[in-house]
């Protein structure tokens, strides 16, 4: 089954490609913004310390950021799921391109993440995509991150976040915040993949979405296949963005409740 059919996105995607008024915060790696399947998209850069466009197209950060951006905002004619190309994608890079190795899911410190969340909220994001894990957690920094999530709650900004790929039972400082929607990765039959973290909090407040053998954009024009909870998150983010495009007067609580019902 096609991933967008599995989560019943197909009809919604036929109704709309999204509205540019709906801004999506993408806190990830930088994006290959000159990619031919992305240049038609509504990409807006919010630069942190790093630029929003890739400087090294073969870096992990660029590959990851470009793939997730493609799931959300590629042209509908591209091989990527391309859920909501007419929504505005706010690119807020958080991963450095200098990271070596092939990490499955890039990581950020809680302080860096909190700063990026505040930036996205201030730039008018309605929904934020967190396809990432946390590194070096500390109590003080976690408090700052909680404040960022609380700000998102008070401003009605929804947050979809990766459950994590350790194959463990339990939640993180990200997924245990009650406003955050944790996303588990499933295969194309709807069963959770082995690597996906699960748990009672995740099971109660979260959603499952396709995260196995997903075809998407590579940073250098090639086609990539990726999996994991990182890849599952933008299916939820994209669904939220399309729903809000169709129902612009709906509150964040209404959108969230409709998804959880």
């Amino acid at each position: 089954m096609h991933p967008t059919e599995l989560v019943k996105l197909t009809r919604l995607m036929q109704r709309t490609q999204g509205s540019s008024d709906i801004r999506i915060g993408l806190i990830d790696g930088p994006v290959a913004t000159s990619h031919t399947d992305l240049t038609n998209g509504h990409l807006q850069e919010i630069s942190g310390n790093n630029g929003a466009s890739c400087t090294r197209n073969n870096s992990n950060a660029c590959l990851h950021g470009t793939f997730i951006a493609g799931v959300l905002a590629a042209r509908r004619t591209s091989p990527a799921p391309a859920i909501c190309p007419d929504c505005t994608l706010l690119i807020r890079p958080i991963f450095s391109e200098s990271t070596s190795g092939r990490e499955h899911m890039p990581s950020a410190t809680p302080q860096e993440l909190a700063g990026a969340i505040f930036d996205c909220i201030n730039a008018g994001a309605r929904v934020i995509n967190l396809s990432l894990a946390l590194a070096q957690p500390s109590t003080r920094e976690e408090k700052l991150l909680d404040e960022a999530f609380n700000r998102a709650l008070s401003r009605g900004v929804l947050i979809a976040a990766a459950a994590g790929n350790q194959g463990m039972l339990g939640s993180s400082v990200i997924t245990r915040h009650p406003w955050v929607i944790p996303v588990v990765a499933c295969d194309l039959r709807g069963y959770p993949i082995n690597e996906s973290n699960l748990g009672s909090t995740i099971g109660t407040r979260g959603l499952s979405a396709p995260g196995d053998n997903i075809t998407g954009l590579g940073a250098e024009g090639q086609i990539l296949t990726m999996g994991g909870t990182s890849v599952a998150v933008p299916f939820v983010t994209g669904a939220i963005a399309l729903l809000w495009s169709q129902f612009p007067d709906a509150t964040a609580a209404q959108i969230k409740l409709a998804l959880m019902s």
């Binding site: 989560v7 009672s200 959603l207 499952s208 979405a209 709906a250 019902s261």
Partner: peptide
Amino acid sequence: RGSVVPPLLDAESAWQILSTVNT
């Protein structure tokens, strides 16, 4: 629900719910 596995995203059901609320 009491499960460690969350339900599958169902965008169409969410659309139906919102279309009855926001007419």
